[in-house]
Simulated assay, not measured.
Amino acid sequence: MSRRDFIVQLEGRRLTTAQIHYYRPDAPSLLQLFVWQEYDLAPDFPVLFEFLEHWRREIEAALHSVCISHEGMIRPTKWRAVDGVIDIR
């Protein structure tokens, strides 16, 4: 994890993933997917909505839907026991 990532988490931002489904004008019958990730503040998601506004203004693709996933809190990495022995020689 980079220093910036840790600092923004301490400020209350959490990793947010958005699946953006869209149509391109040259292929209107083909639904396409773009995955976006950034640290953002729930429940308002100002960074995501700024990106979506940029998309509406600058990208020639019609938005179909946006699915948002958000990690809630900082916590230690999860460890799990592995049953077995790895022999390194």
Rank of each mutant, 00 (worst) to 15 (best):
C67A: 12
A62E: 11
R89F: 05
V66T: 06
W55C: 05
K78L: 08
R24G: 07
D26F: 10
S29I: 11
G84I: 15
E50P: 00
D87F: 09
L52Y: 05
I20G: 01
V47T: 12
I68L: 00
E53M: 03
I20E: 04
V82C: 07
A62V: 14
P43A: 02
D44N: 09
L33R: 11
V47D: 01
I68H: 01
I74P: 05
R80V: 11
R14L: 04
F45I: 05
P46S: 09
L63P: 00
E50F: 08
T77W: 08
R57T: 13
L33F: 07
E60D: 12
V47P: 00
L48D: 01
C67G: 04
A62G: 09
I7R: 04
A18E: 02
V85I: 13
P43R: 07
S69G: 03
L33E: 10
S69K: 06
S65K: 04
E53S: 15
E50G: 08
W36C: 02
A42Y: 12
R3Q: 13
V35H: 05
V66W: 02
L31Q: 12
R14W: 10
V82Q: 10
T17E: 09
D44E: 13
H64S: 13
E71I: 14
F34K: 12
C67W: 14
G84M: 09
T77G: 03
Q9D: 02
L63T: 11
R14K: 14
E38W: 12
C67T: 15
E60V: 06
W36K: 01
R89H: 09
D44F: 11
E50V: 01
R56Y: 10
H64T: 05
W55R: 03
E58Q: 13
E60H: 07
Y22S: 01
P28D: 01
D83K: 13
A62K: 15
V47C: 04
Q9G: 14
D44H: 08
R13W: 02
L15A: 07
L15P: 05
R80M: 05
R14T: 13
F45S: 00
L30M: 12
E38F: 15
R89M: 05
P43F: 06
A81W: 13
D26T: 13
E50L: 04
Y39Q: 08
I68P: 03
A61K: 02
P28C: 00
Q37A: 04
I20L: 11
L10S: 04
A61R: 09
R57S: 06
V66S: 01
D26P: 02
M73I: 04
Q37F: 03
E11D: 15
W55K: 02
F34Y: 14
L33A: 07
R13G: 02
C67K: 11
A61N: 03
H64G: 00
T77V: 12
D44Q: 14
S2T: 15
Q32Y: 03
A42I: 02
M73W: 14
I86T: 08
R24M: 10
D87Q: 06
L63M: 14
F51D: 08
P46Q: 04
P28G: 04
A61V: 06
L30R: 15
S29R: 15
R3M: 10
V85A: 05
E71R: 14
S69Q: 09
R89D: 07
F49C: 03
W79C: 05
A42E: 01
